[in-house]
């Protein structure tokens, strides 16, 4: 008796010590990770001009960097930030929806279904993403031109979603671990494969859906090279990333760096909100009990 009690007591205090250590490590890591973001945030409140300053906290605190992005006509004429934000939000939402759908479809097909050319497709999927592709920008632009949708946001959505088909790796690995006995039980009950997909597999894949949705949502907020090329000079149609980069060339950097920082901070907001919302789906149920007994 006393032995197990002592053992249990020892175990509990060991665990507590471990937890304290973990808390310390997590805190230190968080500080390191957040520091650049914190620096960015501070810069966005800075009133003085300039890009690099040797201090972290602003001498003059101001909100104007945020407000000027939206209602200073000098700025919005050449840098319509509000429009960019809206554009990116629309593109992100649609490409997130389509991409997640595509990734799930492809991963399920490769994981669960067996068909003749499956191995070939798997190998192709691995290497197709590897081609160093700057030529593809000109090609993509001309393809869109052939359909008369060059320079539109819809074309952007299509392009971002097109690459999603190659991003099935993680989801497929995940599906591979979901017990096949679930499938078999359902098939005995007369379900078609598509019904298995919608009714059984999808509900079990919440963490992976969240991960895929999040990463495909983030994508359009961060791509600037392709958008700058694709949208040519149509500033109104830029997304946030391409637009913000315009604020950092040699002539504008001195005056507009702080606005750039403010704009960048604003970008982080929708993404964080999305993640917070999806957190509860993230902590998914567990498959364990479904087939037991």
């Amino acid at each position: 008796m006393t032995n197990t009690n002592a053992a249990q007591g020892g175990y509990a205090s060991k665990r507590k010590a471990a937890n304290v250590a973990v808390y310390i490590i997590l805190s230190v890591m968080s500080v390191i990770w957040i520091f650049p973001i914190f620096w960015l945030l501070m810069q966005s409140f800075r009133g003085e001009k300039g890009a690099i300053v040797p201090y972290v906290f602003p001498k003059q605190w101001t909100f104007s960097n945020y407000t000027r992005l939206f209602n200073d006509p000098d700025i919005t004429e050449a840098f319509p930030y509000g429009k960019w934000f809206l554009n990116t939000l629309i593109v992100a939402i649609f490409s997130c929806l389509i991409s997640t759908f595509i990734v799930l479809m492809v991963s399920y097909a490769f994981s669960r279904l067996r068909f003749k050319s499956r191995k070939t497709f798997l190998n192709l999927g691995l290497i197709l993403g590897m081609f160093p592709g700057f030529m593809s920008m000109a090609a993509t632009y001309n393809i869109m031109k052939a359909f008369h949708i060059e320079g539109t946001l819809g074309a952007l959505v299509i392009v971002y979603s097109a690459g999603a088909g190659l991003g099935y790796q993680v989801a497929k690995g995940y599906f591979d671990t979901v017990s096949r006995s679930l499938d078999e039980a359902a098939m005995i009950d007369g379900a078609t494969r598509s019904q298995i997909f919608y009714k059984i597999i999808l509900p079990l894949s919440k963490p992976i859906i969240v991960y895929t949705a999040l990463t495909t949502f983030i994508g359009p907020w961060t791509d600037y090279i392709f958008v700058s090329y694709f949208m040519l000079d149509d500033k109104e149609n830029y997304t946030v990333a391409a637009g913000l980069v315009q604020l950092t060339n040699a002539t504008t950097m001195y005056d507009y760096f702080t606005l750039f920082c403010a704009g960048a901070v604003l970008v982080a907001i929708p993404i964080t909100i999305l993640f917070v919302i999806m957190q509860k789906f993230y902590v998914a149920g567990v498959t364990g009990g479904a087939v037991k007994g």
Binding site: T222, A241, V267, A268, T272, F275
Partner: peptide, 10 residues
């Protein structure tokens, strides 16, 4: 996640 939410080029 917030550190990933700020675009990479920034």
């Amino acid at each position: 996640v917030v550190t990933a939410a700020v675009p990479q080029f920034v």
